[in-house]
Write a protein that binds this DNA or RNA. Structure first.
Ligand code: FES
Ligand code: FES
Lengths: 143, 143
DNA sequence: TCTTAAATATGATTTTTATCATGTTTTAAC
DNA sequence: GTTAAAACATGATAAAAATCATATTTAAGA
């Protein structure tokens, strides 16, 4: 479904959504510790996200990562696409070339409706939505 | 979601469900070719399934694999469990220890209902069900 | 009984994914 | 300007997954 890498990326972005701010940057090391992900590995992922402007970074002392208001309007699908590419989630459960309703694999009807719903939410709901969920206590983040 | 290996295994089992019979055994090599999976790799998977008695094998000349009536009463979940173990499908999308409703991750509510449905069907529907689908032309198998 | 065709067992290799390490650039603070 | 703290870039290593290779066992058929 999601690679380990994009799981890490999603967790990091959500962490930033809750804890960071334009004038409260957080360094890679601290994020990594908080979300239980290897530091150097996460650093690399954060760089990719920053390069694609999904998150914002500031170099030098007092620097770090944070989510701007613009950043918060991205969807988690955007995060996943940066890390995993856009084919992974779209593929058939049995990897039969393309997942399509015209030539469905035997599992297609079992999973496709629900998966579509999932992917649409992931696409449509902005990062803001999820941070609100967490702040309201209806969803949880740490390990 | 599913490992490559269990995708192969599922495809092979479904192939056997449609094409094999007590007196129509099929060798690993032929199955592999038909479902587009590397021969030696599939052979190994078939051996695991055979060892767990999800499929039936006969050694020696004129031997091969087939699905007995008993075999056809297994579910695809059984197939997946033999290959991937039973934790993989049960895990949280974000890999937050355990997926449970009490402490749901931010994606839990998005995916869990649909995933439950999927897993239940995978558990409850027998191999027979899927082969019927394919025979009726409402689902497709090859590449 | 001998040969041969199949599964089975075991392990080696390759590829992919995840992880670690090290040097370079930027910039705030002194 | 010098120092130091951060991101950034690049590549090396390790672990896991997928793939390949080879020798052994079983049983049909001549
Ligand atoms: S064709 Fe397999 S999931 Fe859609
Ligand atoms: S807790 Fe993450 S999917 Fe259930």
């Amino acid at each position: 479904m999601l690679s380990n890498s994009s799981k890490y990326a999603v967790k990091a972005v959500l962490y930033l959504a809750i804890h960071s701010h334009k004038n409260k940057k957080i360094m890679a090391k601290d994020i990594a510790e908080s979300i239980n992900v290897p530091q150097a590995y996460l650093a690399k992922l954060l760089q990719e996200l920053s390069r694609e402007e999904i998150i914002t970074s500031v170099k030098g002392p007092k620097g770090g990562f944070y989510l701007s208001d613009d950043n918060r309007n991205f969807s988690l699908m955007d995060v996943v696409n940066v890390i995993d590419g856009d084919k992974r989630l779209n593929s058939c459960v049995l990897s039969l070339e393309k997942c399509n309703a015209e030539k469905p694999c035997p599992l297609h009807n079992l999973i496709s409706p629900s998966k579509s719903v999932f992917m649409e939410s992931l696409q449509k709901k902005k990062i803001k939505y999820f941070s609100k969920q967490i702040e309201e206590g209806s969803a949880f983040l740490p390990l």
